[in-house]
């Protein structure tokens, strides 16, 4: 895992469904492992003000178990789609001993929420990483990604500092998908004059011999943002029905 390749405060932007939440969870939990024995805290900020579910906050148990602090709307507000930024976020970004990963909603409206933090972000050592998942709609071509990148960065008031390649088809991902996504990600990184910082590879494919050798640091993705019945954490419910239901 590429634990040295991201700044103390790292915000993840990209079109909806590009893999920001998966990367945020992976980076945050890995940072704890990296700093084991040390004092710094790690926080994951779920800044997704767009989606009703499939948000990083649904991995709360995993994050808690890993020692990551989750900064997200709490209680009943956690299951609303309201534009709420927890008041603790600004403080966390400003703390020199806190590593912070920010998961941003996947369009300019979502990135505007990040824009409201641009002042504290700029004052901190930070990264703004653009994630590219090429099989997603409106994300297949160079022009589409560049237009999206401009919209997202513009709304956030920050400059993109790196690109992450995450082209996949979930369980059906092939090496060819990874390669095809890397091509576009490299083109975009070159055009933005930044580095291709990471490549996300689905668990199970990371050992494939056909993977290109010239890869940037790899993040192995164990998919969490899938429904519970597919092995993920999304829409987990408390077991109430383990008894005979009245009237059945």
């Amino acid at each position: 895992m590429a634990r040295t390749s991201w700044s103390r405060v790292t915000a993840l932007i990209g079109p909806a469904g590009s893999g920001k939440s998966e990367l945020a969870i992976a980076l945050a939990t890995d940072a704890v492992v990296a700093r084991k024995g040390g004092t710094p805290h790690v926080a994951l900020v779920d800044l997704d003000v767009l989606k009703p579910y499939f948000r990083a906050r649904e991995a709360a148990q995993i994050l808690r178990a890993a020692g990551v602090e989750l900064l997200a709307p709490e209680g009943v507000l956690a299951v609303a789609d309201l534009p709420i930024i927890p008041p603790t976020v600004r403080g966390a970004i400003s703390r020199a001993d806190m590593r912070v990963v920010i998961d941003v909603g996947g369009d300019p409206v979502g990135a505007r929420a990040l824009g409201s933090l641009a002042d504290v972000m700029t004052a901190a050592p930070h990264d703004l990483l653009l994630i590219i998942s090429r099989h997603r709609p409106f994300a297949g071509s160079f022009d589409e990604i560049m237009a999206t990148a401009a919209g997202l960065a513009g709304a956030s008031g920050l400059k993109i500092t790196g690109v992450v390649a995450n082209t996949h088809m979930m369980e059906a991902t092939t090496v060819e998908d990874v390669r095809w996504g890397l091509d576009l990600s490299r083109q975009v990184a070159t055009a933005l004059a930044v580095e291709l910082r990471l490549v996300m590879i689905p668990e199970g494919l990371a050992e494939a011999e056909e993977l290109p050798l010239d890869l940037p640091p790899i993040v192995i993705v164990k998919r969490r943002m899938t429904p519970v019945f597919m092995g993920g954490v999304v829409l987990k419910s408390s077991p109430r029905g383990m008894r005979q239901v009245p009237g059945s």
Partner: peptide
């Protein structure tokens, strides 16, 4: 014809269905 379901936007789980079948 027996029934198991959960209202209110709660999704019945695999475990719950298995439990209901065993009942």
């Amino acid at each position: 014809v027996k029934f198991f379901g959960r209202p209110g936007g709660v999704i019945p789980t695999v475990e719950e269905i298995i439990h209901q079948v065993k009942l």
